[in-house]
Write a protein that binds this DNA or RNA. Structure first.
Length: 271
DNA sequence: CAAACTCCCTGTTAGC
DNA sequence: TGCTAACAGGGAGTTT
């Protein structure tokens, strides 16, 4: 499931390949993937626009587009659960679950493939319409432990579901929330406003470290035109390890349900 | 306003 | 072996 590190990896891989490319045509195989505008407008507005930049904000991929004259748009892509992007020759046979296809001017196609149909595409003149309400970027240079402290203050909610809230902090999903809390030695059920200075500091460091490490690992093994398929799973400490011994203390990793989300933690290390 | 719950989807896995 | 039910989960929308 693509979270911040996966989307960052995708952005880095696609950037050199997409910069300067023009969209010739758009084919929508499943209209539900297009959030806005209406599918007919979506396909009408894109042809002729070139990719000016490829960026990430939270879990969104942003392709800033432009043309010599006339209105410019930003294409935003949210992969949600099962969304994938591939950039391949137009001669490649269309894959199963292909939802939207962008025909480019270099003989290739950018393909949005999504088995579970949760992913969404947005074409807007102002990206703030979509990403404007997101919380801070956890890896930003100007995001400090004090910022995190202020965010947690006065929040009675458990820290785990709060980390998943995109308006709280952008880009953290279920996997890295569990991993960050393990690194920080914090019980995921503990309320945010009960975190002492020490714990917030550890969460700040743990969150940034696990995200950075994941980005590094995902940069390693990419290929076959499909992006965001890293080997990060092998490095996880608690996620998906219920019933197995904690790497730090050998206690059995537990899995509970917290705000409808599977939550993995070590009951001894995380307090 | 914050917090909790519902729903959208389908491939995979657990259970019988 | 073959079937069904539960499960996975991001986030918009709705309700409390």
């Amino acid at each position: 499931m693509p979270e911040l590190p996966e989307v960052e990896t995708i952005a880095r891989c696609l950037r050199p390949l997409l910069l300067g490319r023009a969209v010739l045509d758009v084919r929508i195989a499943w209209p539900g993937a297009v959030d806005r505008p209406a599918p007919a407008d979506f396909t009408a507005r894109l042809p002729g626009q070139r990719v000016d930049s490829v960026e990430r904000r939270g879990k969104y991929l942003l392709l800033a587009l432009g043309r010599k004259s006339g209105p410019a748009d930003t294409l935003l892509i949210h992969l949600r659960m099962s969304g994938r992007l591939s950039l391949v020759s137009a001669a490649e046979p269309p894959p199963k679950h292909l939802r939207v296809c962008f025909v480019l001017d270099d003989g290739r196609e950018l393909r949005f493939v999504d088995t579970r149909k949760f992913g969404r595409l947005y074409l807007v003149s102002d990206p703030a319409e979509i990403v404007g309400r997101l919380g801070p970027e956890p890896l930003a240079d100007d995001f400090s432990a004090d910022d995190l402290r202020r965010l947690c203050a006065g929040r009675a909610r458990a820290i785990k579901p709060l980390l998943l809230e995109q308006t709280f902090i952008a880009g953290v999903g279920n996997i890295y929330a569990d991993e960050a809390l393990f690194r920080a030695g914090i019980d995921p059920r503990r309320s945010a406003n009960s975190l002492d200075r020490e714990r917030v500091g550890r969460l700040y460091v743990g969150l940034r470290a696990v995200l950075r490490q994941a980005i590094e690992h995902q940069g390693a093994d990419l290929g076959d035109g499909v992006y965001g398929q890293g080997s990060q799973r092998e490095h996880l400490q608690v996620y998906g390890r219920e019933g197995k011994p904690c790497f730090a203390c050998n206690t059995t990793i537990e899995k509970i349900r917290l705000s409808q989300r599977g939550t993995h933690f070590c009951p001894r290390c995380q307090t």
